[in-house]
Nucleic acid binder design. Structure first.
Lengths: 266, 266
DNA sequence: TATAGTCGGTTCATTATTCGAACCATTGGT
DNA sequence: ACCAATGGTTCGAATAATGAACCGACTATA
């Protein structure tokens, strides 16, 4: 691993749960030498990527990201694009729609949209991080990721978010072929109890999987009809989103035929 | 300069004007070897800090900033705080108020607010970059920066944005003591013709200058009364902003006494 | 008040990583 | 067909990263 990667990986230890980290602790977390971490932090700080909280205290993410994110967003307004797509998806299904992007070996939430059709909705959180093995979105991404990446991801210890979370690598691997066949991943209660989630991968210009679009609904509301509706809408919407973001599904990606067309037409 | 700094400095070449850059061009811009730039870009790409546009094409800023900016903003909602302060400042003066942060050796726009009191207003741009020598904000920052930083900044070639831009380092240095005395920098037409700008530095928890808050007005509208009003409001607002962002003005920073108190009271 | 264990920050000889000139294979314009 | 770009790759030389040990300052404990 190069020096730059080490420096950048330090940034991944900052999260909503641990927004500021001390030098020694960060050295411990990253497994790097304290002096090394100090140098890296100093360089990061010089560019505004981290900053120190008080005097001689912990570090936190710096102000540079505001500008860079603004530039990125200006050039590739992914969040706006995603939000617009999610709103339509959400209107069509009546359930919470969200989209997340692959960031290292986790997914981070990009945007989400709620429906007001029902009294209860699955709630999402900004900048939330989703593990690949415990969510529908994660499974969708794994199914369209290189084998080496899957191996790496599944070789790490898999934590159980709920009693229904799959933590057996063999079991997870077994799901991937069928996901590839349908283009849709389904997960029940893997991330939150009583939530059933459908997810479809999103691809970039090189047909690499960069994230997933998903619909999350309470288990209690799921019917065959709703499931079919979600699958149809989600697949069409995700394809379109990939396209307007400048991406292309790989050749192997299934050309989905809506199953409830007849019902719609009838 | 460390390897990490080199990698991070590559990111600074991306701007609104040049949102995507090829390998060779980036090597030229940065003065680094092409192989070096390639390695650094590869590492940056691995963390989502840059990405390639098509197949074998130019690079642009990556999606990682969305998440990191969200985390940063979640912990330190600087933009919201700034926006709120700017709105009040703008209401009080009737002119465009904006705030920018020091990022390396330039200022980047954080937020701005327009008034609807007049038909014409000075306009701002998101993620715009301001050079330190050509703007009121820049002069305010220079006046409260370490000598070494001033030397470094003024030793680089200074480009003239307008016919009124100061480009002589000696001339610029001569302004700094008076800015330090009043705490306010004033610049006429340095960045845009016919715009007069007042700026006050903003400080962090260690009393280091991290940016500036400013009011920009058309030259044609400037009167002694407006100038005084802007100075009073701006100084008070900037002090307050520094404070609620968790910062402290240095001991040397002047304790400003509003000059038009009597007029107000009368 | 003495002590032990933190913390952030610093030093310096060793060593592993980065560097860069030269070199491909492609592409696009003349 | 040619030339001058481009993105990407190689490998010995040179540089920059590394980490154990060490500060001084703090804090909690005894």
């Amino acid at each position: 691993m190069g020096t730059t990667s080490k420096a950048l990986s330090l940034l991944n230890f900052f999260s909503r749960a641990t927004p500021q980290i001390g030098l020694s602790e960060l050295a411990r977390l990253s497994g790097l030498n304290k002096a090394t971490v100090y140098r890296l932090l100093t360089e990061l700080a010089g560019h505004g990527f981290v900053e120190q909280v008080g005097t001689g205290r912990e570090y936190r993410l710096g102000p540079a990201f505001l500008r860079l994110a603004a530039l990125r967003e200006n050039q590739v307004p992914m969040r706006e694009v995603a939000l617009q797509q999610l709103t339509q998806l959400c209107d069509a299904t009546g359930e919470t729609a969200h989209m997340s992007l692959l960031n290292g070996d986790v997914l981070s939430n990009l945007a989400y949209a709620y429906s007001n059709r029902h009294g209860t909705m699955v709630m999402m959180e900004d900048a939330e991080v989703l593990e690949l093995h415990s969510t529908g979105s994660g499974l969708a991404v794994l199914a369209y990721s290189p084998v080496s990446f899957v191996d790496e991801t599944l070789s790490a210890p898999l934590t159980a978010r709920t009693s229904q979370t799959l933590t057996d690598p063999v079991e997870i691997r077994a799901l991937l072929p069928s996901i590839r066949k349908s283009g849709i991943a389904e997960s029940t209660g893997g991330f939150e109890e009583d939530v059933i989630s459908h997810a479809v991968p999103i691809f970039d210009a090189r047909s690499a999987c960069i994230g997933a679009m998903a619909v999350a609904a309470p288990v209690s509301r799921m019917t065959d009809h709703l499931r079919q509706q979600i699958r149809d809408e989600l697949m069409a919407r995700a394809r379109h989103t990939t396209r307007i973001l400048g991406g292309f599904p790989p050749d192997s990606f299934p050309t989905y035929e809506p199953q409830n067309m007849l019902q719609k037409e009838a």
